Every structure is written in structure tokens, then in C-alpha cells.
Amino acid sequence: MGTLALDTQKASPDIYISLGLKAMGKRVIGVPPVLSLLSTLLERTVQRNETLLEEKHVEDVVTLFHGLRAPTLSIPKYIDRIFKYSGCSPSCFVVAHIYVDRFLQQSEVKLTSLNVHRLLITSIMIAAKFMDDAFFNNAYYAKVGGISTTELNRLEMNFLFSIDFRLQVSIDIFGKYCSQLEKEAAEALEVERPIQACRIKESWSNKDDSTCASTIAR
């Protein structure tokens, strides 16, 4: 995810509604927009980091979160999968975003296609444990994430020690990250408009992922 250039101003309540973190009245929000915005930010960060590593001919620092090869499941589909099967609150994805930032700030690791999936499943699981009243255990999250329970247990402990167990997130920091994600939506729209004007279409796979099959390459 990289370190965010955060604004000093607090997020307005409208931002929480636009991200799908807070519903208006009793309206069902469905799939919250924060998922696609976070996916876009992650994909852009991964692409930028891998380009820089390739141009500089350097290798990233290898950690427990690195796989031998990039998973076939895309970042957006992986995040959608976690949301679908974990049932965690949308706010957990923002908190997980903050946790991963803290992890990256405490190390020389770059977010790449080799580590982003493991960092996601680990940080979201930890966020759910810290934020939600009810949550699934590690074995369930491991099945959703496509890794073994033993591996997820190791990843969780490594992650927690790496961020010095700093799980508390202030309202101010949470709001600032939400503001950054809303800006991501505006930037994505600016890019999408000229593409639509040129009538450029892109093909995406619609392969069903309704079963908890393995998604991360060992």
C-alpha cells in the first residue's frame, strides 16, 4: 500500500457513507465501494513497486509473506472473496489498510504480487478480531485465503510483532485514510472517462469462486 500522504483535515460523515462504511437509515449497502477503491489502490501500488524494482535491477526483501509465484486470483477478486465469506464489517478493510501501512513502514519490504495476498488475509483477519464483536477463527480464514492454518498462524504472529502489536487506530487516523480512499475514487474516475470516450473495453474473467479452493501459490 505504501505510506499515504494524509490530509490534516478530518473526514466528513458523508465520506463514510460514500465508502459504504455507514448506511443511510436502514438501507442495505450491499458490496461497499471501499472494496473496489482499496483494490485499485493496491493494484496501482503493486504495479509501481514492481516496475521500480525491475528498473533498478534489485530484489525485494523476502519475508514469510512472499510466495514463490503470484496467485492467479486478482487482488479485487481476492478482496471480494474475503468480504463474501468472512462477513467482517467494511471498516475492517480500512483498518487492515492502516495495519499494512504500519507493517511496510517498519520494514524494507515493498508491496508486490508475491506478498500482497498474504498481507491482506492476515491484516483483515487481525482487524476483524480487533474491531468486530463476532469473527471466524484462524482455520476458517486460512481456508478462505487459500493457505494452511499453520501458515496463517505464523503469518499472524510475524505481522503482530512487526507492527509492535499497535492495533489501536484513532478516529482521526481512520478518517484520514477514508479521505485518501475517496480521493482514489476521484482519480480513478478521471482515468476512466477518457477510456470510455475512446470506447476501450477490457475482458475480465468471470470464473466462479463460490467454493473455498486454494488461491495462493505456495
Rank of each mutant, 00 (worst) to 15 (best):
L104C: 00
F159T: 06
T150H: 11
L19E: 05
V144Y: 10
S162G: 11
T72P: 02
N115D: 05
T122Y: 08
E59T: 08
A197M: 07
H117I: 01
Q196T: 15
L181V: 08
L68C: 12
N115I: 06
I121V: 07
D208S: 11
A186W: 12
R69T: 11
A96F: 01
V62L: 13
K22Q: 14
I163F: 07
N158H: 08
D101F: 09
L21C: 06
Q196E: 15
V58K: 03
I163R: 05
E108V: 08
K129N: 00
Y85W: 14
D80R: 15
F136R: 13
K143N: 08
G25S: 11
K56F: 01
S107K: 13
D80Y: 10
D164Y: 11
R166T: 09
T63H: 08
A23N: 10
D60E: 07
F93C: 07
G87P: 02
L6D: 01
L35E: 03
R27W: 11
S107C: 13
G67K: 12
L114T: 03
L167T: 05
I173F: 13
A188K: 04
I15L: 07
R118E: 06
S39L: 06
S205G: 12
S89Y: 02
A11C: 09
K26H: 12
S18V: 10
L73S: 03
I124D: 07
Q106D: 10
S91I: 10
S12Y: 04
V94T: 05
V28P: 05
R166W: 15
N153I: 03
Q180A: 14
Y16G: 01
F93H: 05
R154D: 08
F161P: 06
W204R: 14
Y141M: 06
Y85F: 14
V144A: 09
Y141D: 04
L68R: 15
S74F: 07
P194R: 02
S36P: 00
A23R: 08
Y140S: 00
S39M: 10
R218V: 15
K176A: 07
V100M: 11
L114G: 01
Q106A: 15
K26C: 10
S123R: 14
Y16D: 02
I147V: 10
A197Y: 05
L6H: 00
K22C: 12
L19C: 06
E151I: 05
N153E: 04
T45N: 15
A139M: 02
D101G: 08
A96R: 01
I17N: 02
G30F: 06
S162E: 13
M1C: 10
V58W: 03
L6E: 02
K56T: 01
S170V: 00
D7E: 04
K77P: 03
L114W: 01
C92Q: 06
S91N: 07
K183I: 12
F135S: 05
E108P: 03
M157G: 00
V28N: 15
L111G: 00
T40Y: 09
M131Q: 15
A11D: 12
H97S: 12
